[in-house]
């Protein structure tokens, strides 16, 4: 028996907006602790991890470990139909994930489960020299600003500032933010702007983002729900001088 009820439909909608732009299919794991997924995109550039502990849900019931394999695009098409005030209920039957929206009316969708042969990958454990927090909206704005001049973005941090910048053929752009945190080293890596943009589609998950940066290391971006019961995080491989 699996049943999960969520009053904030935005959590699923915003998570899968990002997830569906990164991977075509996912294996969600449900157990008594909650729901989680780990997925790696086809070209092994972005890794995504979603964890919704049972405390996130208004009601959560799961007697045995369950693998829920879905096509992310199909799931996203359904989640887009959720209205902000709808309660969302997730259940499974033989071969389907059942998504029910309950508001003015009760609307029920069945999404066919798919076969996924491989095991979900586990995230690599990397040691980072820096970790700091920035407002999510600032990151979103930075992407827009840097996108004016380039399709790549350099992210760097030092004792005082976090900086997003790019040098383009026709001009340069730079965003500086005083992070106010204790950072003892500086770090810089370059990323594909398009890939960062995909991650930042999850703009209703959290007000702030925890960033870990190293030199020519993957970008580790974590969005955490205020309750600490939910996390959506990403690892993005850098662009490296060849």
């Amino acid at each position: 028996m699996f049943k999960a009820v969520l009053s904030d439909s935005n959590i699923l909608k915003t998570s899968f907006d990002a997830i569906s732009s990164i991977v075509d299919e996912v294996q969600m794991m449900a157990d008594e602790e909650g729901l989680r997924l780990d997925a790696l995109d086809r070209s092994h550039i972005t890794f995504v991890h979603l964890e919704l502990k049972k405390g996130v849900f208004d009601e959560y019931q799961c007697d045995e470990t369950l693998k829920i394999n879905v096509d992310t695009e199909e799931l996203m098409k359904v989640l887009k139909r959720a209205k902000a005030e709808d309660m969302v209920e997730l259940t499974v039957d033989e071969g389907n994930l059942i998504v029910t929206f309950e508001g003015e009316a009760k609307r029920k969708f069945k999404i066919r489960l798919i076969d996924i042969e491989y095991e979900a990958p586990s995230p690599p454990e990397l040691e980072y020299p820096t970790e700091f927090e920035v407002p999510f909206s600032l990151l979103k704005d930075s992407i827009q600003d840097i996108g004016i001049v380039s399709d790549k973005i350099s992210l760097q941090v030092n004792e005082e500032k976090f900086q997003a910048s790019a040098e383009g053929e026709f001009g340069d752009a730079k965003v500086e933010y005083v992070h106010g945190e204790r950072i003892e080293e500086s770090a810089r890596s370059i990323f594909s702007l398009e890939k960062v943009k995909e991650m930042l589609k999850a703009d209703k998950f959290s007000e702030s983002a925890v960033i870990r940066l190293g030199n020519d290391m993957p970008l580790n971006l974590a969005l955490k729900m205020a309750s600490d019961e939910g996390e959506l995080s990403f690892l993005l491989a850098p662009r490296i001088e060849s």
Binding site: L40, S43, H44, I45, T46, F47, P121, P124, L126, I190, S192, D216, M217, P218, L235, A237, P238, R239, I240, E241, S242
Partner: peptide, 12 residues
Amino acid sequence: QEKQSSLDAFFN
């Protein structure tokens, strides 16, 4: 000129 790396290099 830099190029896109893969996470595989960091997974192990």
